[in-house]
Computed example of a mutant assay.
Amino acid sequence: MSTKNKLKANINGKQIKIRLIELGMSQVDLARATGASKHYINHIISGYRSGYKYREAIEKVLGIKSE
């Protein structure tokens, strides 16, 4: 997969954080719902990871679409 395609698949950490607040969910809740570790979810929100591996699961749980 090219870098260009990976960048398009990135999930906006700020968007995730806002949606978690709106839903009253924690990062731990999101990790459990997606099968990711809490540390991996934190790295996605912080921008250290692209979130590509769990993008679809995160979008489904939070009801959002990545940019």
Rank of each mutant, 00 (worst) to 15 (best):
N5E: 12
Y52T: 09
A36T: 07
S66T: 14
I44K: 02
R32W: 08
Y54M: 02
N10C: 13
K38E: 09
S37Q: 05
S37T: 14
T34S: 11
Q27W: 07
T3S: 13
Q15W: 01
S2G: 15
E59L: 05
R32V: 10
I64K: 02
G47H: 01
I45L: 04
M1S: 10
R49V: 04
K17C: 02
K8N: 15
K8C: 13
N5D: 08
R49F: 04
H43I: 03
S26N: 11
S37A: 07
R19D: 08
S50F: 11
A36C: 07
S26Y: 06
I16E: 07
N5F: 09
H43S: 08
A36V: 01
E22W: 13
I58M: 02
A33V: 06
Y54H: 09
Q27R: 06
M25K: 15
L30R: 03
I16T: 08
A33W: 03
E59P: 07
S2D: 15
S46G: 14
K4A: 12
S66H: 15
N5A: 06
I64C: 06
I64R: 01
E22R: 14
S26P: 12
K60W: 07
I16G: 03
T34Q: 01
K8Q: 15
I45T: 01
L30A: 05
N5Q: 11
I41Q: 02
K53I: 13
I58S: 00
I58H: 00
Q27F: 07
N42V: 10
V28W: 12
I18T: 15
L30H: 11
M1F: 13
S46R: 13
A57M: 09
S46P: 05
